[in-house]
């Protein structure tokens, strides 16, 4: 078990890991090697680079710097985050020590504290009904809401490993799961073979609209075909800090994770820093917040 697992290897995550490591904590950084930095061809407003620096180079430098400090780094994708507080036994009798469980595509890890630094979440696709039916068939948490869809036909909106994970949460409870990739190709997941599964269907057509009266009843595709569904679980791309934070019960306001002055979320031991907390989407701000989180974690 690690003292701290940092999810995200950009400026916020790496800075947090460096400060935590300096405090003699054992630290693991899980990074998907996907960052908004890659979009920055040349960064000219960050301190200390008179010729500017490309986002990719800055990112790679950060990873190298952490490796030089003997911080463990793995390239993987986190699909679920939970803590031992949630199992039934500990719900009544508080656990002695809080342990976070971090599930990735390839492995799973345990930590006493977690720092979320995966950047800002992507915008929701522009599908009609997705906001209108939130809580009326649109859900962002399979593990929370699967219960209400016992024996029903549901869909997962997404095409990556996160969508596959949500499908697996739902499958034992619901009648069928349709993965709606909304025009994308479904990810190749070496552990899960969907093609042989009678309960699971993949539709790679573009989605036009979710429809219903008081609740969702059907999905319409851009080619005007339709399918009956009673619930849609949104799991687009990679599980973002927001997705992970929401499921573990951290408060989110206006699409950003709420933290205190030390970057701790409303869940004890869970920190968030960088773009996922809102405010300026700047490297300097991510580094500052990473510093705060790295200094405050497990203090």
């Amino acid at each position: 078990m690690y003292d701290v697992v940092v999810i995200g290897g950009g400026p916020a995550g790496i800075t947090a890991s460096i400060y935590a490591k300096r405090r003699k904590l054992s630290v693991l950084v899980i990074s998907k090697k996907e960052t908004s930095l890659f979009k920055a061809e040349k960064i000219e407003n960050y301190y200390g680079f008179p010729q500017g620096i490309s986002g990719e180079e800055l990112y790679n430098n950060g990873i190298k710097q952490a490796e030089n400090l003997s911080i463990d780094i793995v390239e993987d994708e986190v699909v679920a985050l939970s803590s031992n507080e949630f199992n039934e036994k500990n719900f009544e009798n508080k656990a002695d020590e809080k342990i976070f469980e971090i599930e990735t595509v390839n492995s799973h890890y345990q930590a006493k504290a977690v720092i979320l630094a995966t950047g800002s979440n992507r915008l929701l696709p522009n599908i009609k009904g997705i906001q209108e039916f939130e809580g009326k068939g649109i859900s962002y948490c399979a593990i929370c809401d699967a219960f209400f869809y016992k024996g029903k036909d549901v869909a997962v909106l997404g095409s990556g490993n996160y969508a596959i994970h949500e499908m697996q949460e739902l499958k034992p409870i619901v009648n069928s799961v349709t993965i709606l990739t909304n025009g994308d190709k479904i990810v190749e997941n070496r552990d899960v073979d969907i093609s042989k599964d009678e309960k699971v269907q993949v539709i790679e057509k573009k989605v036009k609209e979710f429809r219903g009266d008081s609740k969702i009843q059907e999905v319409e595709f851009e080619d005007e075909t339709k399918k009956d569904i009673q619930g849609v679980f949104v799991a687009i791309a990679t599980a973002s800090s927001n997705d992970l934070a929401r499921k573990i019960g951290a408060r989110i306001e206006h699409g950003h994770i709420v933290t205190d002055e030390n970057m701790e979320t409303t869940v004890k031991g869970l920190f968030a820093c960088g773009d996922c907390t809102g405010g300026l989407l700047q490297i300097s701000k991510a580094v500052y917040e990473g510093t705060l989180a790295g200094l405050a974690v497990l203090r």
């Binding site: 939970s82 949630f86 039934e88 719900f91 219960f147 929401r246 573990i248 019960g249 951290a250």
Partner: peptide
């Protein structure tokens, strides 16, 4: 609420 729901637990 339900005991297995993290957000419920936090509330």
């Amino acid at each position: 609420w339900a005991s297995w729901c993290g957000p419920c637990r936090m509330m």
